[in-house]
């Protein structure tokens, strides 16, 4: 540290500061043009008038948001009352994503903890094993889940084979199937941040707790959990947020009854019901929801650092 502020060795430095703008320009252009500007255009589209058979008419309109929140009767001239259809779809999405997050936490925490307490050489191998499925096509994973869970599928064959059940359990096209699918899709996201937190945890704290007469479960609850809380929160966010807007799991595993936001949005751009402004408005509401969750968690994490 000799030389204080002057000492080099920091990984973030200014060797190429003259070329900085040039170096960053391609990423600004590509992401600006093809992600940031499109999101703003989506915002604009949500305030336009719908064209039948897809597209928009360039006329300002609040119809999309109005349709989302209010019911004005079949001909649009009744006194407005709250429209529950879409709010319920959002609510169901939150509930499904929340349930998947809880499943992922219940399985993911012990897994992450177990991996983090393996000898250092084998840890990487365990982490690798847990992450491989994430890199397999989400579509294929969801299709595989559907194949496994079918009434005549291998899972039911297996359960009937060992005599746990007499007739197939009906899982496909239930809420539970969707939760299971979401859980399966994003489970590695729960494991990784918790693993990182536990790996950094100083186990002499647990020893100190044990020395002060805490039982193992008291140690877990009172000492370990508070210490790794940021990792747990990060894991929950990483499962909850993508689950909320997911399309494949509800579409392939949930069937027509178990609609979620993703399917609602997709329908506006694909099916004949095509209503682009409404789809854009629903996307904006989903995006806002996600940003609120991220902001709340960021605040929570910042608070945690002060302790």
């Amino acid at each position: 540290m000799a030389g204080g502020a002057a000492s080099g060795g920091k990984a973030q430095t200014d060797t190429y500061k003259e070329a900085r703008t040039l170096l960053l320009l391609p990423s600004w252009l590509v992401l600006g043009f093809f992600v940031l500007i499109p999101v703003f255009m989506m915002l604009i589209y949500s305030f336009l008038t719908k064209e039948f058979r897809g597209g928009v008419i360039w006329e300002f309109s609040l119809a999309a948001y109005d349709q989302f929140f209010f019911d004005r009767g079949l001909f649009g001239d009744d006194a407005p009352s709250i429209e529950w259809t879409y709010i319920n779809i959002f609510w169901r999405s939150i509930w499904q994503a929340g349930a998947a997050t809880i499943f992922a936490l219940l399985i993911g925490f012990p897994t992450a903890y177990f991996i983090a307490t393996r000898p250092p050489n084998s840890r990487q191998m365990w982490v690798f094993l847990v992450t491989i499925p994430y890199w397999v096509n989400l579509l294929i994973r969801t299709v595989s889940m559907k194949f496994l869970l079918r009434d005549q599928g291998p899972l039911n064959d297996f359960l009937m084979g060992i005599g746990i059940v007499d007739s197939p359990i009906h899982i496909i096209n239930t809420d539970f199937a969707v939760q299971l699918g979401l859980f399966y899709s994003y489970l590695p996201f729960m494991v990784l941040p918790i693993y990182a937190a536990v790996e950094r945890y100083n186990f002499s704290l647990s020893e100190a707790a044990a020395d002060l007469y805490a039982s193992k479960w008291q140690t877990l609850r009172r000492v370990l959990l508070p210490a790794v809380k940021p990792g747990v929160i990060a894991g929950c966010i990483l499962v909850f947020v993508p689950s909320l807007g997911s399309f494949l799991a509800p579409d392939l595993l949930g069937g027509a009854k178990n609609f979620m936001i993703g399917s609602l949005i997709e329908e506006q751009f694909k099916g004949n019901a095509g209503n682009w402004p409404f789809g854009a408005a629903a996307s904006m509401i989903l995006l806002s929801l996600v940003l609120i969750v991220l902001m709340l968690s960021a605040r929570q994490q910042n608070k945690g650092e002060g302790v």
Binding site: W28, L31, V35, L36, V39, M42, G245, L286, L287, V290
Partner: peptide, 19 residues
């Protein structure tokens, strides 16, 4: 900006790009 595609839900990016 670099991480934007990770923050925005995929279906929202899809809609935005289509629009």
């Amino acid at each position: 900006l670099i991480n934007l595609p990770l923050i925005v839900p995929e279906i929202v990016t899809a809609v935005a790009t289509l629009i």
